[in-house]
Simulated scan of single mutants.
Amino acid sequence: MTNLLEAKGLHAAYGETRVLHGIDFAVRQGGVTALLGANGAGKTTTLRAICGLVRTQGELNLNGTSIGGLATEDIVRLGVAHVPDGRGTFMELTVEENMKLGAYTRPANQAHADFDHMFDYFPRLKERFKQQAGTLSGGEQQMLAIVRALLLRPRLLLLDEPSFGLAPLIVQEIFRILRRIRDDAGVGILLVEQNAALALEFAEDAYLLETGRIVMSGPAADISKDEGVRRSYLGY
């Protein structure tokens, strides 16, 4: 399987504060890669670096095209969609309006044709189509954030803590749907997830990030068996 995204020697900084120190990683075409690490390790910064939201150095290539240094809107147009930590839902707008914003780069007739497809994945959102997003439950808001990203028809989907603050049954439902999306659309997924057991079960490949450096990488199944990972992140 070929790589959709490749990062080589990626550095990232906020002003004078360096967060990533020359990391290498990849996301395979149609595959799921998990990025693990403690709070403050640089996971969210990695996603922001891919989107052009922080100052970076090094190589970032999407399907062989360099995206390092591009404006965020140009990276989005190349097929990168980001579901940020905290979901980024526009609370004052309706579900319908949030979905239209997600499809802003595409002709209106194409975007509306995808709405029914999204409702097949997330039927609750069809029931709440005219409802203000701020009145949705946390799980429904996360579903809406994922739908908004998918309406871009991305090649690469960046997910930042999709399970955060949600009940276990809702988390199971969301990840079941994400598996369907991966299989149906062939989209590559880079997943940042504090629930390491969940992430390693979902992903094929994984990287462990500590203080801005990759300290372990390989098949997710192998990393889940590592004694240090089990003690520090899996709790057994």
Score class of each variant (00 low, 15 high):
155 R>E: 15
46 T>Q: 05
182 R>E: 13
12 A>M: 09
216 M>T: 06
224 S>P: 02
34 A>P: 01
166 L>P: 00
133 A>T: 10
74 D>H: 10
217 S>N: 12
194 Q>A: 10
67 I>N: 04
235 G>T: 07
182 R>D: 08
186 G>F: 11
11 H>K: 09
236 Y>E: 13
186 G>T: 07
163 S>H: 03
189 I>D: 02
183 D>N: 06
53 L>N: 02
157 L>I: 09
121 Y>Q: 01
17 T>C: 04
140 E>N: 01
156 L>I: 11
55 R>Y: 08
206 A>Q: 06
129 F>H: 12
31 G>H: 08
89 T>C: 13
209 L>A: 10
225 K>A: 11
199 A>P: 00
11 H>V: 10
20 L>G: 01
130 K>G: 13
182 R>W: 09
161 E>T: 01
185 A>L: 15
40 G>E: 12
8 K>A: 14
220 A>H: 03
186 G>S: 09
139 G>C: 04
72 T>C: 08
198 L>H: 00
14 Y>T: 07
204 E>R: 00
7 A>S: 09
107 P>Q: 11
194 Q>D: 08
146 I>V: 15
23 I>M: 10
203 A>Q: 06
8 K>I: 12
65 T>F: 07
218 G>F: 11
95 V>E: 13
166 L>A: 02
122 F>E: 07
7 A>V: 12
64 G>I: 12
115 F>H: 12
68 G>I: 09
6 E>S: 14
222 D>P: 00
57 Q>C: 04
68 G>V: 12
113 A>L: 13
75 I>E: 04
171 V>M: 02
120 D>A: 09
173 E>G: 01
83 V>K: 01
226 D>C: 01
36 L>A: 10
105 T>N: 12
69 G>Q: 01
69 G>N: 06
126 K>M: 07
78 L>K: 15
186 G>W: 11
35 L>A: 02
116 D>E: 15
155 R>L: 15
63 N>S: 15
119 F>V: 05
112 H>E: 15
165 G>S: 03
196 A>W: 10
197 A>G: 14
27 V>S: 04
195 N>M: 07
11 H>L: 09
139 G>D: 04
212 G>P: 05
32 V>H: 02
181 I>W: 04
202 F>N: 00
149 A>N: 04
118 M>E: 13
57 Q>V: 03
7 A>Q: 07
7 A>P: 00
199 A>L: 10
137 S>D: 07
112 H>L: 15
38 A>C: 03
210 E>C: 05
226 D>M: 02
108 A>E: 15
202 F>P: 01
90 F>C: 13
177 I>M: 06
148 R>D: 14
45 T>A: 08
232 S>H: 11
98 N>E: 14
156 L>P: 04
7 A>L: 15
56 T>F: 06
46 T>G: 00
216 M>W: 09
61 N>F: 13
39 N>R: 06
70 L>R: 04
38 A>D: 15
